[in-house]
Design a protein around this nucleic acid. Structure first.
Lengths: 312, 312
DNA sequence: CTGTTAGCGCTTTCAG
DNA sequence: CTGAAAGCGCTAACAG
């Protein structure tokens, strides 16, 4: 009836009628059923957001800014945790598609071919994030982890470090960075692989492992700042000076990286920017607006701090 | 038709028919529309989860375990950020109610009386968390922030610290802890109030402020471990030894608290437990199962570490 | 500007 | 065990 119009498109209704409706709404405490509305109009105003785990600090700024941008445009985020093994990817995606969201934002790439095909078939706008590929399901905004890896290795080598090592989570993106790192080194290096998500605790163990493999290690790249923090703590406990005896580089530029003692060299990625962009791209696509680029490289930056001051 | 039954209640359908349906589903890539189903059956299988901001590390374990428990029961979480000022509470709740979730889990208490009344009227199960009250909207699982505050003050006083101080975020729960702290002290103490959400950066500033108010301060309680970490960094920068010159107690028992140098005395709260309980209570209520207790106090614990080793 | 008609995709209810 | 009928609360499309 007219009531619906008064609420959703008041411009086309008489002022007097609007007022009557408003009073009725007030009196009854009526709250429109968005589900029914979305059901009929085919616009749920829901965006599915998939992360490996919400507890990964790494993706928080992304999630935060995404939610914010979406909210301002009237969209809500429905959250899914895909876990770090890929087995849950497909069922999760299945459930999410069942909810007919207007868009899907995924942290990382969609790995299963079946899931990719299905997503493409249903035609829901999809943004993959925090990674890069020439063949996204739909859109992608991220950066190259391989390049990050080789940039860090190059950074160490340029400063004269010879004996390099890696402490990394066993997730896909970590593996890519390791790959890039090794490529730039031109050979294998001592590596401690820890189960994602990483933590300080795991960082301490990782350093022990690496040193057991090769006690001469003088520079180590860690796949997260948390891991790096653990490595530094373990170094301290062993009487190794950072950066004197051991140079450390993290990844993520966490809050504490600038303030730790010594401050931590790390890789800065604009996580909030990724979230904002992803949300904007989804929203644009939902409104049939053209997307200028469906593959966006936001890049990254090595932030040099005390933990890698050049040796000798 | 029969197809629907084959998928949702296969026990009552002939094996042969089920097989036929399964094949058709496979062939067409059919994914049931959960929205339509939920719309008709009045069970959306959606739970609204409201947090001040997803980027607050504090609530991550809660969010994580909540999502996990819900997922296993077939529920999805729809995320809302209420912000730290209460102005967004009502509109956000309004939107969420519009989606007719089967339940609502809120971080903190519902503050606005209008929102409380509305929630009670619509009759959606609600769990308020991370706080305690005798009069929840529906259910509550958390702990007393006032008690936390007085426990910390008591902890300091028992160890012989005289000149106490507070660095706290300006949020509601922080204010309660401060209240408890002051009550136990029996008087005002130097206080630095920083805007929530807190960070290391703010912690450094907070210590400066507090010392400006009273340079004799010898023990400080911080409303988050991040803040405490900042305070310790600033102390270090000023040449103050922790705990020799300044004892520090945080809140939250973050990952790094056990591993920082010195390790950080803090308050441990079972965030994951809160999330799990809240989810279970909501699910029980959704299935018309009785709730044994609608007010659950999960308590807290002071974890004593190096940062508060007794003076003299 | 306002009312009427139809129908979104499912599940529930009731008959076969 | 399977089918047919009805309708959830809303909006889009058309008439008045």
């Amino acid at each position: 009836m007219t009531a619906s119009r008064s609420l959703s498109n008041p411009g086309v209704v008489a002022q007097e009628t609007i007022e009557k409706v408003r009073k009725a709404v007030e009196a009854t405490g009526y709250i429109p059923n968005l589900v029914a509305g979305g059901f009929k109009s085919k616009r749920s105003l829901l965006i599915a957001g998939l992360v490996p785990a919400v507890s990964v600090a790494q993706f928080l700024p992304t999630l935060q800014s995404m939610t914010q941008v979406l909210d301002r445009a009237g969209y809500q985020l429905i959250l899914g945790q895909s876990g770090y093994d890929h087995s849950r990817e497909e069922p999760l995606l299945h459930t999410m598609i069942g909810r007919r969201p207007d868009g899907i934002i995924i942290t990382g790439l969609v790995h299963s071919a079946a899931a990719r095909a299905r997503l493409q078939k249903v035609g829901i706008p999809v943004v993959e994030t925090w990674d890069l590929t020439d063949h996204p399901v739909d859109m992608v905004v991220g950066f190259s982890h391989i390049k990050v890896g080789s940039a860090i290795a190059g950074f160490f080598l340029a400063r004269g470090y010879k004996h390099l090592a890696i402490a990394t989570g066993d997730d896909h993106r970590g593996a890519l960075r390791r790959e890039g790192f090794l490529a730039a080194c031109g050979r294998e290096v001592p590596t401690a692989m820890v189960p994602a998500p990483s933590s300080m605790e795991l960082g301490r163990r990782a350093l022990s492992e690496v040193l057991a493999q090769d006690p001469r290690v003088e520079a180590i790249y860690c796949s997260s700042d948390q891991l790096a923090q653990g490595v530094m703590a373990e170094a301290l406990a062993r009487g190794l000076r950072v950066p004197g005896d051991l140079a450390v580089c993290g990844f993520g530029n966490a809050d504490f990286a600038a303030h730790s003692q010594p401050s931590l060299t790390t890789v800065d990625v604009d996580g909030a920017g990724i979230g904002k962009l992803a949300a904007e791209m989804i929203i644009a696509r939902c409104n049939d607006q053209p997307i200028s680029k469906s593959i966006v490289d936001v890049g990254f930056q090595i932030v040099e701090r005390q933990s890698t001051a050049a040796p000798g």
